[in-house]
Design a protein around this nucleic acid. Structure first.
Lengths: 259, 259
DNA sequence: TCACAGAGTATCGCTTTGCAATATGCGCGT
DNA sequence: ACGCGCATATTGCAAAGCGATACTCTGTGA
């Protein structure tokens, strides 16, 4: 079996192929998280069936996969344990949790904390208020940096060359028909975010939703995440939403910044 | 390197040692989730330093570990992605999410969904209402089945012998000075849960907290989880809490049961 | 009824992958 | 200066993991 080309920055002798394949198996459920037969796992993870069997049995034994009711294997509860460890390891999440709860109560809208991660941003805290679509309630969801108010709020605090690099590497597919995907349009939004200290998006990720986000910066003024407030266009005009709620998001994000 | 004794139910030739060791590394952060040097990882995971280096580099390359600001390695955001996949793979969580949000709004208290997992129960949905302790806001937290209202609500729906087996295998250490750890006491609570269709606990997991839970059953009437409502003893008398809120939890759990 | 496909499970000889031990450089504290 | 712990780098070897294959069972369609 031939080692793949070395992962950037890691000596290939230090890179464990079998561990990577096990991660491929877990990641194979990202495109479709429903239970899978070993054959399906093999196909989705790019393995042969023997490999899927061995990796599947190992992950099953450790609780990272579980048997599906109708046969096959599904993801296992141990993934929640690892996520719990992640959430409690992150001081920003711990500091933000009570503040965002206050913000949710004060605004009566959905409030999120996202973490900036290069070409995507990932939601770490999701606090529902009214009725939400299911995925909007789940920690761990990723959204492209270029298309999210929180992502653009963070990009606003990066040097232009770094922004250009991220945009160039981003797969700029639209999430809705309102998603801005052209670099000049996105740059316009980033300049606006630089001027306003927050960024907003209207129906770019979800039809009917207006959302604004203010960046959280670390001690070196580098963006590490964003505080989001999301509302419904059936209840808010865009201008009202921004006028009323942006100062609150900016205040919360500032209070979280710097440490 | 010698294979360990075979994991129950898995042929040792199908069990991948190196994958298991990588999981050991991730799990090493459970006892203390702060950043760790390679030496600390090695010690905590029971490995030598070379192994920690190879596994650490692999997990780093794949985003499951990240570099800590002060050096060392910490858990990485990819764990949230995997947890996201788990959450959206589970039909009960999807069905429960809007219902629990309604329940939170209706009660004005914290509402959770837990999943029954043998000697522990694990929280999958956490909906804060008032101020909560940080860990009480996090999905993925585990609590012993014997000591949680949700766990006991589930035990109430198991045959006696199965309950005895779980209790015998449980590490019955107290969470607070109010935690019931003696098997006869716990059985009393299980009998009460059988009579009431819900179980309650007072300060057994957290001082100052009163919580009740109703079991969610699958199509075969086997317990798979529980709906929890949690309040503060500074705001509720135990009797009022139970009288007012138990019927709501029982109703929600019943609506979730059976599918 | 029969053939086939796909599911899960089991096996084995071989070689490649991962291993343990070791070395090196750097920074910090005594 | 020295020791310690950190991160990084290296190497020969053998065992761990591999791919290919076989087997059994079940469900489906002709």
């Amino acid at each position: 079996m031939k080692k793949p080309s070395p992962i950037a920055g890691v000596d290939e002798r230090l890179f464990l192929q079998s561990v990577a394949r096990a991660l491929d198996v877990l990641e194979a459920f990202a495109q479709n998280p429903r239970p899978k037969s070993l054959g399906e796992i093999a196909t989705a993870a790019g393995l042969n069936k023997s490999a899927a069997q061995r990796i599947g049995q190992t992950l099953l034994a450790r609780g990272y996969l579980e048997k599906g009711e109708g046969g096959g294997l599904m993801l296992g509860k141990r993934l929640l344990d690892r996520s719990f460890d992640y959430l409690r390891s992150n001081p920003l999440i711990e500091r933000a949790t009570p503040m965002l709860n206050e913000l949710r109560k004060r605004t009566g809208e959905r409030v999120d904390l996202s973490l900036f991660d290069d070409t995507t941003t990932i939601y770490a805290i999701r606090l529902q208020s009214k009725r939400e679509t299911f995925y909007a309630t789940l920690p761990g969801r990723r959204i492209p940096t270029f298309a999210s108010s929180g992502g653009r709020a963070c990009l606003a605090h990066l040097p232009d060359a770094h922004v250009d690099d991220i945009l160039a590497r981003s797969e700029r597919v639209p999430l809705t028909r309102k998603t801005l995907t052209e670099i000049p349009q996105i740059w316009e939004k980033i300049r606006e975010a630089r001027a306003n200290a927050y960024s907003h998006a209207v129906e770019e990720a979800l039809i009917g939703e207006v959302v604004l986000a203010a960046p959280v910066l670390d001690m070196d003024r580098k963006p590490i995440g964003a505080v989001h407030i999301a509302g419904s266009l059936s209840e808010w005009s865009i201008d009202d939403f921004r006028q009323r709620l942006a100062p609150l998001a900016v205040e919360a994000a500032r209070a979280l910044s710097g440490a």
